[in-house]
Nucleic acid binder design. Structure first.
Length: 427
DNA sequence: TCTGGGGTCCTAGGACCC
DNA sequence: TCTGGGGTCCTAGGACCC
């Protein structure tokens, strides 16, 4: 039962290029928040040997020499492009799993290999034509193999962007696997790669031919599953509906070091507002809040401090104000003076459906209903007029927030704000 | 000077109980 | 002074992904 994996090439860079055709063919990177790290690279930049995730300041010199163009990330634009891409692809199968912002699986069971190729090619052309994004397509009997096929589709010109694993003769398949390093397998990262190397497993072929049982003992059940998937036995099911998040985080590094509890509190309040809004959007409640603060671990010459506190609520809630209160408590407990804090964040934990909440025996049903109404109104206003226009009262909302992140070179919201719509000149 | 953010799953080990 | 064995539950931390 074939599964297709479609994903965009250098997604963030490609999105930027759709609205800036002049960037085509040029070395382009997109940077993370605070313009900190490289999170997307065009093919030209990859060819220069720039690794994923490197700090921008480390390659600034090279960038200058090679004329690399750096853009701040524009997540609103990428999210919107992603949605359009997923909608187009949903036409090709009734069963679609959106796996990340730039990739999805399509279930093609019952479709013959030749037909799979046809579907892959059409999908690829359509995304290119309708959206302007380049995508690669891998089709194989399991998700893990589809990932590998997708890798081949992008790397080997002979496949022209669409690789159907089952069309490849067995002998050729073996040759391919013998040449692919084991770290190309979906689920094998740096650490496991190293450990596999120690026991003589270097290529995907080696892993495919390892005995799953002892490998499970040595690593974990995930390893066994991976080996079976490589052998064509489907172990990772399609997940069509997006399950509600079991954990919701919000965190940011600061644009400059932060020292006072007031400023930390201000940041944490905003993260809580953001996280609880996500929580309500998926119609959930959370029973615990974890807050953490830390100095910059890379500044080894400075005194380091990091701390985290979990506050368990007496009852699961989705009320921003309750979490704000808990957050303040956590911060007061762990804050230490005399450190330059670089980052703070919050996690909402023990999330469950809002429907299943037991009424608190000691609670006030009417007050709770009023609170829910208040939060719903707040979400509506913010949805209508832009994020974070209205926030529950917290100390210290003066603008500008000195610690807010740096984004030096962000592109306009081409697709989501009238004022910034792309202007097209017809010739 | 400048090093992202948001997730999931699994395991080891401690606490606790009988 | 001597100091078992087995189970469950929870949490922290590690590994992975994009």
């Amino acid at each position: 039962m074939p599964i297709a994996l479609i994903d965009a090439n250098n997604f963030y860079v490609s999105c930027e290029r759709v609205f800036r055709p002049d960037l085509e063919g040029k070395p382009v990177v997109v940077l993370s928040n605070n313009d900190g790290c490289v999170v997307a690279r065009s093919a030209e930049v990859k060819a220069l040997g720039v690794a994923m995730g490197v700090p921008w300041f480390q390659i600034k010199k090279l960038a200058q020499k090679e004329g690399i163009i750096a853009l701040s990330s524009n997540y609103t634009l990428y999210a919107d492009m992603s949605q359009r891409m997923m909608t187009i692809l949903s036409d090709f199968s009734p069963i679609q799993e959106v796996y990340s912002i730039d990739e999805c699986f399509l279930d093609l069971h019952g479709v013959a290999p030749e037909q799979c190729r046809q579907i892959g090619q059409t999908a690829r052309q359509r995304i290119r034509q309708w959206l302007g994004l380049p995508v690669g397509v891998g089709i194989a009997p399991t998700k893990t193999l589809a990932k590998l096929a997708n890798h081949l589709a992008k790397k080997q010109p002979e496949y022209a962007g669409v690789c159907v694993w089952e069309e490849i003769p067995e002998q050729k398949q073996a040759e391919i696997l013998q040449q692919l390093p084991v770290t190309e397998v979906w689920g094998i990262g740096r650490q496991w790669g190293k450990r596999l190397q120690e026991i003589g497993i270097l290529t995907v072929w080696d892993l495919q031919n390892a005995d799953p049982r002892p490998m499970r003992q040595r690593f974990s059940i995930l390893m066994e599953r991976m080996i079976r998937e490589l052998r064509g036995e489907s172990c990772i099911a399609m997940e069509e509906v997006a399950l509600p998040k079991q954990e919701i985080q919000s965190s940011r590094s600061f644009g400059r070091p932060v020292k006072t509890m007031e400023e930390l509190g201000e940041a944490i309040s905003i993260y809580i507002a953001r996280a609880t809004s996500k929580l309500r959007r998926q119609n959930s409640v959370a029973a615990a809040l974890r807050v953490y603060i830390r100095t910059n671990p890379f500044q080894t010459s400075l005194p380091q401090y990091q701390a985290a506190r979990t506050v368990v609520l007496s009852q699961p809630s989705q009320d921003t104000r309750i979490f704000l209160h808990a957050g303040k408590l956590a911060l007061t407990q762990m804050y230490r003076e005399g450190f330059a804090y670089a980052k703070a964040g919050v996690h909402l934990l023990e999330i469950s459906s809002a429907q299943s909440v037991q009424a608190d025996l000691f609670g006030d049903a009417e007050a709770e209903s009023r609170a829910n109404h208040l939060m719903a109104t707040l979400d509506q206003i913010n949805a209508r007029f832009g994020k974070s226009i209205v926030q529950p009262g917290i100390a210290g909302w003066q603008e500008p927030r000195g610690w807010a992140m740096k984004r030096g070179n962000k592109s306009p919201a081409y697709t989501t704000r009238w004022a910034e719509l792309a202007r097209v000149t017809l010739k």
